[in-house]
Computed example of a mutant assay.
Amino acid sequence: MTPPVDPALPSLAPIRTTGFAAFRLLGPPAEPSTPKQVSSLATRRAGQAVMAETLRLHDGDPPRSWWRRLVGASPLSADSRPWYQGALGEIAVGRILGRLGPEWTVLHAVPVGAGVSDIDHVLIGPAGVFTLNTKNHAGRDVWVGDRAILVGGHKQHYLPHARHEAARAAKRLSAAVGEPVPVTPVLVLIEPGKLTIRQRPADVRVVTDRELLRWLKRRRPVLAPERIDRIAAAAAVPGTWHNHPAPSEDPVALQDRFAELRAIELSAQRRRGLWGLGLMVGIGAAVVGDGSDLLTALLNVGLS
C-alpha cells in the first residue's frame, strides 16, 4: 500500500540511479520475502485442536507419584480429562468418515472465526455440505427432543451450537465460492448408553456414531461433481474460515504425543482393573479361608 503524501513537504522528483551508484546508495538488492506458508486444511487430523489442548493442559499437571503409578491412578487431571474424551470422540468419527468414497472431501478440526474456535468435521460430497459436531458420551443416557438434548438428565446447548456452526460455515463458504452454499448441521453422539428420541429436531440431524456412515451414504445426491470440486477447493483454504490463519502444529508429532498419553492412560486403566480383580479374589479367599493370602494376592496383581 502506498503511504499518504504530507502536503507540508515539498514534492521530490524520483531519483533515477542505476548500476554501481545505485548499489552504493541503496545497498544490495533485498532477498525476496517468503512469508510462512499456511498449509491446506486437508492436512489436519481428526481431533487435532482438541488433542493440542489436551496436551497443553496435561503438560501443566503435576507428575504422578510412585504410589499413584503403582495403584493405576490416571495421568489425566479434572481439567484435561474432558478434552481427552473429546479427542477420542473426534478421532473415532474421523475413522468412520475415512470410509466414505473418494467423491467426498472431509476436513477435520477447521479453525474458524477470529479466535480458537474450530469445527470438528466439514463434509462436502454429492449429498451436500455438512458440519459435524462430535459429542463423546460413551455409556451415558441421552434424551433428544425437538428443542433440547439432555445428557444424564442435564440440559446441554448442543442444538444451538450446531446451528451456529452450520450458519457460520454457510456464510463463509458462500462468500468464498461466490454463490449460496447451504450447510446442514449434524450432531454425532458417540456410543450413548440409553438413547431416547422423544422428537427429532427439525433443523439439526442427530445420529450416533454407528448410524453416521449409513445415514450419509443413503442421502440422495444434490450437488453436481463440478460444484463439489469448487466448494471443496474453497473449503481447503484456511483463509476461507479464519480471519488470521496461522501455521498449525505438526499434526504427525501432535498425534504421536497424544498416542503416548493414551498408552499411559490405558496402562493405568488396566492396572486399576487388576487391583480390583485382586481385591475381589482376596475377599473371596478371606470368606472361604483365613484371609492370610489377601495381601499377597493384592501385591501380586498390583505389581504385575
Rank of each mutant, 00 (worst) to 15 (best):
L189W: 03
S74M: 08
Q37L: 14
A42L: 08
K171Q: 12
I119W: 02
R227H: 11
D250Y: 13
A148F: 06
E260R: 15
G239V: 02
V110T: 09
A268D: 11
R271L: 10
P14S: 12
A246D: 10
P160S: 15
G239F: 04
H244W: 08
R218W: 03
P32T: 07
T208S: 10
H161Q: 15
L107Y: 02
F23V: 12
E165M: 13
L212T: 10
H161E: 14
G178L: 04
P111F: 05
I119N: 01
D79E: 13
L26S: 12
N136F: 06
V183N: 02
G101C: 07
L212S: 09
P160V: 10
E211Y: 00
G282T: 03
E249I: 15
G125V: 01
R172E: 01
P102D: 15
E179W: 01
A166P: 06
P221H: 07
V206D: 14
V206Y: 08
S40F: 03
P7L: 07
G19C: 03
V181Q: 01
Q85R: 10
G276E: 06
P180E: 08
D290A: 00
A162H: 08
H242T: 06
S292R: 15
N133A: 15
D61I: 00
I190D: 04
G139R: 03
I197V: 15
A138G: 13
W104N: 08
A259K: 12
N133C: 05
L100A: 05
A87F: 04
L277V: 07
A138D: 12
L298Y: 01
S248R: 13
G178T: 01
S304R: 09
Q156V: 08
V129R: 07
I119K: 02
R99H: 11
H137D: 05
A170Q: 11
P10E: 11
D79R: 14
P10G: 04
P182T: 03
P160R: 11
A73D: 09
L107S: 06
V50S: 09
T2I: 07
L26E: 13
L187Q: 04
G72P: 02
M280R: 08
E249T: 13
L187T: 02
L213C: 05
E31S: 10
W104K: 01
V206K: 12
A166F: 02
P4W: 07
L187M: 02
P111I: 07
I228L: 12
M1E: 10
L76H: 07
S292Y: 11
K194Q: 13
L123M: 04
D229V: 00
G19D: 09
H108I: 00
I149V: 13
A46W: 08
R140P: 01
P29V: 06
A114L: 09
A167D: 15
F258S: 11
K194F: 00
S292I: 02
A30S: 15
P29A: 08
H121M: 06
R56V: 10
A42Y: 01
R168G: 14
G113I: 05
A235V: 02
D61V: 08
R99P: 04
R272H: 08
L212G: 06
P221I: 11
L216G: 04
G178Q: 07
V112K: 09
N300G: 08
P7R: 05
R219N: 09
M1I: 11
P192V: 01
A253L: 12
L97I: 04
E179N: 01
P185H: 05
V237L: 09
D120E: 07
L298S: 03
V93Y: 01
